[in-house]
C-alpha cells in the first residue's frame, strides 16, 4: 500500500538560494502560484465592466457572488470600519478556498495541509489584528484583557487566562485548517490504497467511501476557508471595537 503521507512530501522544482536562504520553488510554491493565478483569472477575466450587457454571465455571476459573500461577511462581522480590510480578507478567503479546492484534484498538492503555511497566515492575521487594535486604541487596547463585570480580586487569575486565550488564537486558527486538510486527504489516500488490493469484488467498498469523502472534502474545503476568514473577521472586530 502506498504511503498515505507521501502526498504531503515537499519536492523541489526549481532550486533557488538567495543570501543563504533556501528559496527554492517547490511543489507547494507552484500550487500557491497556481491558486493566485486561478483566483486572479476568475475575478478579472470573468468580469467585464461596461460590457453593455446588464445580466452577468455564469462566471461573472460566480465572481460577483464571491465578492458579495465576503463583503457580506466583513459587513456583518466587522461593520463599516472593516471596509479598509476587505481586499485582504477577500484575498485570504479566496487563497485558502482555491488552495483547498485545487488540492482536491488528483495528483495536485494541497499547500493548506502544511502547518507552516497555515501558521504563517494565522500569525500574519494575529499580528495584523493586534497592530490594528494598538494603533486604534493605544494603551486602552490592554483593557481588552480585563474582563468586565468581574471583581478586581479575580484579575490576577482572569487576566492571564485572557492573555493566554488571546495568544492561542493563531495556534487554533492554523491547526484547525491544517488538521482538517491533512486528515481529509490522508483518509482519502488510505481508502484509495485499498481499492486495488481488494480486487474487482471487494474494491468497490473503499471506492464508494472515497466518492463520499470527495463530496465531503468539497464541503470541508469551503467550510474551512469560511471558518478561517470569519474568525479573522471576528478578531478584527474585537480589535476595532474592543467588545
Amino acid at each position: 500500500m502506498a504511503n498515505p503521507l507521501e502526498q504531503f512530501e515537499i519536492t523541489t522544482v526549481v532550486p533557488i538560494r538567495i543570501a543563504g536562504i533556501d528559496a527554492s520553488l517547490t511543489n507547494a510554491g507552484v500550487f500557491m502560484l497556481i491558486a493566485t493565478a486561478a483566483v486572479t483569472v476568475f475575478m478579472v477575466a470573468a468580469v467585464r465592466p461596461r460590457s453593455g450587457s446588464e445580466v452577468p454571465g455564469r462566471w461573472q455571476a460566480m465572481a460577483e457572488l464571491a465578492y458579495e459573500f465576503v463583503a457580506g461577511m466583513v459587513r456583518e462581522n466587522v461593520g463599516q470600519e472593516g471596509r479598509r480590510f476587505f481586499p485582504f480578507i477577500f484575498s485570504l478567503f479566496m487563497f485558502i478556498l482555491f488552495g483547498n479546492l485545487i488540492g482536491l484534484i488528483p495528483y495536485s498538492f494541497t499547500f493548506t495541509s502544511h502547518i507552516i503555511v497555515t501558521f504563517a497566515m494565522a500569525i500574519t492575521v494575529f499580528i495584523g489584528v493586534t497592530l490594528v487594535g494598538v494603533f486604534r486604541h493605544g494603551l486602552r487596547f490592554l483593557g481588552f484583557f480585563v474582563p468586565k463585570g468581574v471583581p478586581v480580586v479575580m484579575y490576577p487569575l482572569l487576566v492571564p487566562i485572557e492573555i493566554l486565550s488571546y495568544l492561542s488564537r493563531p495556534v487554533s486558527l492554523s491547526i484547525r485548517l491544517f488538521a482538517n486538510m491533512m486528515a481529509g486527504h490522508t483518509m482519502m489516500k488510505v481508502f484509495a490504497g485499498f481499492v486495488v488490493p481488494l480486487g474487482i469484488l471487494g474494491g468497490w467498498a473503499p471506492l464508494a467511501v472515497d466518492v463520499a469523502l470527495s463530496g465531503f472534502e468539497l464541503l470541508v474545503a469551503f467550510l474551512q476557508a469560511y471558518v478561517f476568514t470569519v474568525l479573522t473577521c471576528l478578531y478584527l472586530n474585537d480589535a476595532i471595537h474592543l467588545h
Partner: peptide, 22 residues
C-alpha cells in the same frame, strides 16, 4: 521555501485583488 513562496504569491494575489479585480 514555503514561506518565501507563500509571501510572494499572497502579496501578488493581494495586489491583483485590491488594485484590479475588486
Amino acid at each position: 521555501p514555503q514561506l518565501v513562496w507563500l509571501a510572494i504569491s499572497f502579496v501578488l494575489l493581494y495586489l491583483m485583488m485590491s488594485r484590479i479585480a475588486l
